[in-house]
C-alpha cells in the first residue's frame, strides 16, 4: 500500500514540476534573486552537502546537471515545498521536504542563488595526468 501511495504522490509531484518546467523551458536563464553567500550558509547549516557535496557534486549532483528542478527559482521552490504541499508525509525520494515553516521563501531564494553560483569543476580527461595513466594501464595485457 505504501509503495502504491509513494508512486501516486511521485507522479503528482512529477507532473507539477514538469508543467512548471515546461512553461519556463523556452525562456532565458531565469533570474537569481537571492543572496548566494547567505545561501551558502543555509546550504551548510541545513546539511544539503550531505547528499549534494560541498560544491554540488555528490550522491545527487546539483552542479551543472541541467535539471528541470533548477530551471527557475519558482520551480525550485515548488520542488522544495512539493511533498509538504502536494503529498505530505509520503516520502517520494530521499530528498527531505521543506515546508515554509522550516525553510522560508527567502532562504529558498538564497539557496537557489548559491546553487546557481557553484563553480563548474569537470576538467577535460586529457588534462588530468592521473586518468591518462589509468587509461594507458588499462590498455596493457592482463598479467596474472
Amino acid at each position: 500500500m505504501r509503495a502504491i501511495m509513494n508512486k501516486i504522490s511521485k507522479t503528482i509531484l512529477s507532473l507539477t514540476l514538469t508543467s512548471a518546467a515546461a512553461t519556463l523551458a523556452a525562456q532565458e536563464p531565469s533570474a537569481v534573486n537571492g543572496d548566494a553567500s547567505a545561501g551558502a550558509q543555509t546550504y551548510y547549516v541545513y546539511g544539503c552537502y550531505g547528499c549534494h557535496g560541498y560544491s554540488g557534486y555528490g550522491r545527487k549532483d546539483l552542479n551543472n546537471t541541467g535539471s528541470a528542478i533548477l530551471a527557475s527559482e519558482d520551480v525550485f521552490r515548488a520542488f522544495m515545498r512539493g511533498r509538504a504541499d502536494v503529498a505530505p508525509l509520503l516520502p517520494v525520494t530521499d530528498m527531505p521536504n521543506y515546508p515554509a515553516n522550516s525553510l522560508s521563501d527567502a532562504q529558498v531564494s538564497d539557496l537557489y542563488a548559491y546553487i546557481r553560483s557553484m563553480p563548474k569543476d569537470v576538467p577535460e580527461t586529457g588534462d588530468i595526468e592521473t586518468f591518462q595513466k589509468i587509461l594507458q594501464a588499462a590498455e596493457r595485457p592482463y598479467q596474472p
Partner: peptide
C-alpha cells in the same frame, strides 16, 4: 546524518539540526 535529515524532512521539521 543523512538518515536524520530524511526523518526530519518526512516530518516537515527542517534539516538544520540533523548534525
Amino acid at each position: 546524518f543523512m538518515f536524520i535529515q530524511y526523518m526530519a524532512g518526512v516530518r516537515g521539521r527542517g534539516t538544520d539540526r540533523g548534525n
